[in-house]
């Protein structure tokens, strides 16, 4: 299996890249959502899984960057994809600003700190006349991009985020990140610059999450602060990463597939959808305590995207 890693990944990627050719519109939609959630969950995985930055505030980047896209396209007529890119940079700026306050905090304090930031942004945007308070904004570029274009943008995000994690983990600092995941204090004693590594990951995470959110809102069209900055986003990402396997690259790949499939399937069972989602999550965690890929890896050593060097 592992021997065929590159052919398998190649087939997968080309399969995804040719969805507009072979897939139905629904397959395209499914893959689009898959890629977007994959990119965002990979980033949460990078933070929580490797650097123990337990962020509960990913929605801060999602909403902030989504609003940046809306404001830039609507008020300034910026080309839609350029505004997505700028949105990503705005997200990094936000992350830098946030880090001034929350990087002194650890563990649960950091988690709550990020969440509070997201809540503050929610209050700010819902009270800000410029973005029409809580009414929300429509992202209406003069020439709305087609679904195929949006799909490719999201494919770039999904594949790009996965590749980015892989490259980071294979790079010089990658081993340090994995060591941090296993034991932060000892990795520090070995000479890992914890603060810088964390900051780096936080920046990367905010950038890719921001870009992805930009694409997401180009797809969504309508953005409204109460949901853009809602903790729901992070809850979804946590769900994906935990059931897939935290601290593995394959985890979010599998977890996202399960989540998107479930959310599509459960939407038809309106009143019990959340209940079912909860039961499924608990079952998976009971059967595979370190997530599907984490447990598979422990039991069989299977890891197709292992960042192992040697």
């Amino acid at each position: 299996m592992v021997k065929y890693k590159w052919p398998i990944l190649g087939v997968l990627f080309v399969g995804f890249a040719t969805v507009p050719v072979w897939g139905s519109e629904y397959v395209l939609l499914f893959c689009l959502l898959y890629c977007l959630y994959l990119a965002m969950s990979q980033m949460w995985n990078l933070l929580a899984g490797y650097t123990s930055l337990l962020s509960l505030g990913q929605q801060a980047f999602i909403g902030f960057s989504g609003y940046a896209v809306a404001v830039l396209t609507n008020y300034y007529g910026v080309y839609i994809w350029l505004s997505v890119l700028i949105g990503g940079f705005f997200s990094v700026l936000l992350a830098l600003f946030m880090s001034l306050f929350i990087f002194r905090m650890r563990g649960i304090y950091f988690a709550i700190g990020t969440w509070i930031f997201a809540e503050m942004l929610l209050l700010w945007f819902s009270n800000w006349k410029y973005v029409k308070y809580g009414t929300g904004l429509f992202i209406k570029p003069p020439h709305p991009p087609s679904m195929t274009t949006i799909y490719y943008a999201s494919l770039i995000m999904g594949a790009g985020a996965t590749a980015a994690i892989y490259i980071i983990l294979r790079s010089k600092i990658g081993l340090g990140l994995m060591a941090m995941r296993d034991d932060e204090d000892v990795s520090e004693a070995m000479g890992v610059e914890i603060f810088r590594s964390k900051l780096f990951c936080f920046m990367v995470g905010s950038f890719i999450t921001g870009l992805t959110a930009g694409v997401l809102y180009v797809f969504q069209i309508f953005i409204q602060p109460y949901k853009a900055f809602a903790i729901d986003w992070t809850v979804i990402l946590v769900f994906i990463v935990i059931i897939g396997g935290i601290g593995t690259i394959e985890g979010p790949i599998v977890g996202t597939f399960i989540y998107v499939l479930l959310s599509q399937w459960l939407a038809e069972y309106a009143h019990i959808s959340l209940l079912l989602l909860g039961i499924i999550a608990i079952t998976i965690i009971l059967l595979a305590p370190t997530g599907i890929m984490g447990t598979l890896h422990q039991k069989t050593g299977f890891a197709i995207l292992s960042p192992r060097r040697l």
């Binding site: 081993l175 034991d183 070995m190 000479g191």
Partner: peptide
């Protein structure tokens, strides 16, 4: 100067080789 920490504290999810390499991380 390097530390052999109390309780060994090797990196459980890294291979032996990677654990060693971590010693020469800087």
């Amino acid at each position: 100067i390097t530390l052999v920490p109390e309780g060994r504290r090797i990196f459980p999810r890294l291979t032996v080789y990677e654990n060693l390499i971590m010693g020469s991380y800087t």
